[in-house]
Design a protein around this nucleic acid. Structure first.
Length: 561
RNA sequence: UGGGAUGUCGUCUAAUGGUAGGACAGCGGACUCUGGAUCCGUACGUGAGGGUUCAAAUCCUUCCAUCCCAGCCA
């Protein structure tokens, strides 16, 4: 990735940064990726990660990884581990800049006392229900809390006792004193500390109170010297509060919050809640199910970091809500794997092909290139014999117009091998074709013909004597409709789960080398698609995940008819 | 019916008052031992109306549509 010399596409954030650099507001930039460790990262996070780390790299700045761990009831170290793994896998490096909001708890607490001393925060005894009543609604202003005018001394005393654990959960909160009549609900005396007698995954039982996001995030940014604090659109309404806290407190700097539109991808969901539900209720097989849009799932499916980064670059960054076509992701992974994946032959739905004029018992070896896009990938030897299997789809008894694969009486090339002509076929009682009897042209060895005759069709095959059985897992979209945000009244996203999102095919056959590779290796199965040896792969049970199919202009042509 | 935002090819995204451009998808063709890859060509767009200007996607104005906000979640 370091030798990419692409000029970055302009976007409104880069424009802001360029301005800040030109005007001298900043001489270098610092961004951050601030996940809450309460779930696995998904492709939407990848957009944000690539944006923040990408900006830092592009401007020779820094990007911090900061865990926004202010809510111990939802967070867990399992998630911090997986997040770090995913960010690293995507190819980014935070260096020494690993932070936790929980590292700032003491500082945050001291700042809260300053707010109290300045009369800008108070301890409120309203419970959650009362608080809701007092907050008002979108159209009617809120009412001041009856506890709003407590003295500084009383507030300080109460707040310290909150910290000491003297009060039960939910009985009191610390609130900022701003404006209950503000049309922006976030400014209606927002809660900044709540009591939670819950152990924190990093601070253990040392805190009984935990700061809220709005209060924590801006201060964390300021303490770390973040210059551009990039977040998603739903925080736009929070920006006045972000700025308010920083304006009240003696913080080292005042970062600028910039909001961009989160990623929506067709045929999938991106909400942590929904993804968690899919996992918990076993609609998928865990966070790394290859159908999941999680980084872990995409990694297991066989998407590459390079493809995901390319995707993130291509979708751009803007403020308008949008839905990106999944095909772009497929394009990116094909583009990457086309250069890198070794070619192999495998047959998903085998049909027997016998070459009647090929000597019985003879097995010969032929040369096959590993990757036509990359000569350095070298060649391999593959075996050929009288008994082969080809793809059932590659034969048509009554060929349609434009068909140039195998049919009775027609000649095709077996990739890397010989020309064969179909002369006869056998059928079972139901009339299904069970075997194709062919003849071959011994002079066409290697797939060439000296007389220069044209053979339009080339098909893949495997040698019956040496082929190995494969389990292939053929993945398709998890959902049947592109926009899960737009579903029929009374229906749930679960009603749109694609029953065919996973088809396990155990009858596939592949060339023998496929039983001798490592989990995590990518291949292109000729004419079929890109596959990854799954983590469950073993030589005894070779399991391959289909990452994506190849482009198929024949299928397209067929669909038009 | 409060507040905040956003509307550019089918989709994503540039154009910072001066030729509406790129990518994906589509279509057509060339080439090909993968109907793959590659190459070439092509169609398609400024939400609507008014105004300012020599000139408007861009500025003003009125409307329309969509998204977000009433957690002691982030």
């Amino acid at each position: 990735m370091d030798n990419e010399i692409k000029t970055p596409v302009k976007n409104f954030i880069r424009n802001i940064i360029d301005d800040d650099l030109n005007t001298g507001k900043h001489t270098n930039i610092v961004t951050r990726f601030p996940p809450e460790p309460n779930g696995y990262l998904h492709i939407g996070h990848a957009k944000s990660i690539c944006l923040n780390f990408g900006l830092a790299r592009s401007y020779s700045g820094k990007c911090h990884l900061r865990f926004d761990d202010t809510n111990p009831v939802k967070e867990d170290t399992e998630y911090v581990e997986s997040i770090m793994e995913d960010v690293r896998w995507l190819g980014w490096d935070w260096g020494d800049n690993l932070f936790y909001a929980s590292d700032y708890f003491e500082q945050l607490y001291e700042y809260a006392e300053i707010l109290i001393r300045d009369g800008k925060a108070f301890v409120c005894d309203l419970n959650m229900e009362e608080l809701r009543q007092y907050r008002g609604t979108l159209t009617v202003p809120g009412k001041n809390s009856p506890y709003r005018d407590r003295s500084v001394e009383e507030n300080l005393d109460l707040f310290r006792r909150m910290r000491a654990g003297e009060f039960p959960d939910g009985s009191k909160s610390l609130r900022a004193k701003i404006d209950m009549a503000s049309p922006n609900l976030n400014m209606r005396d927002p809660v900044i500390y709540r009591i939670k007698k819950t152990d924190h995954h990093r601070t253990g039982d040392s805190w009984q109170i935990y700061p809220m996001y709005d209060y924590t995030h801006c201060i964390s940014d300021a303490l770390e010297g973040i210059t551009h604090s990039i977040c998603t659109l739903e925080f736009e309404d929070h920006r006045p509060l972000y700025d308010w806290f920083l304006d009240q407190l003696p913080v080292p700097c005042h970062p600028r919050q910039i909001e961009f539109a989160r990623l929506n991808l067709s045929y999938t969901v991106m909400s942590k809640r929904l993804l968690l539900e899919l996992v918990k209720n076993n609609y998928v097989n865990g966070w790394d199910d290859p159908r999941m849009p999680t980084i872990a799932g995409m990694r297991r499916r066989g998407f590459t970091p390079e493809a995901i980064r390319e995707f993130a670059d291509r979708i751009g960054v803007a403020k308008a809500n949008s839905m990106v076509d999944f095909e772009l992701l497929n394009f990116c992974v094909r583009e990457d794997l086309n250069k890198k994946a070794l070619r192999r032959m495998a047959v998903m739905d085998p049909i027997k092909l016998t070459i009647r004029n090929y000597p019985e018992g003879k097995i010969e070896e032929l040369d096959a290139e590993n990757n036509p896009e990359d000569p350095s990938a070298g060649n391999r030897r593959i075996t050929f014999s009288r008994n082969l299997f080809i793809e059932r789809e590659d034969f048509m008894e009554q060929p349609v117009k434009g068909w140039f694969r195998l049919a009775p009486g027609t000649e095709v090339r077996l990739k890397h091998a010989y020309y064969v002509t179909c002369e006869e076929l056998t059928k079972d009682a139901e009339g299904n074709v069970t075997e194709l009897i062919c003849s071959y042209d011994p002079a066409s060895r290697g797939g060439w013909s000296q007389d220069g005759r044209k053979v339009k069709g080339t098909i893949h095959w495997v040698c019956a004597e040496t082929a190995v059985n494969l389990e292939t897992r053929l993945y398709d979209q998890l959902f049947t409709i592109p926009d899960l945000g737009d579903i029929e009244e009374g229906k749930s996203y679960l009603d749109y789960l694609n029953p065919d999102s996973l088809v396990v095919n155990t009858k596939a056959l592949g060339e023998s080398s496929l039983a001798n590779t490592e989990p995590g290796t990518h291949f292109q199965f000729l004419r079929l698609g890109y596959f990854l040896a799954d983590k469950e792969y073993s030589p005894e049970k070779p399991v391959f995940n289909r990452v994506t199919t190849l482009r198929d202009s024949w299928a397209k042509q067929k669909n038009k008819q």
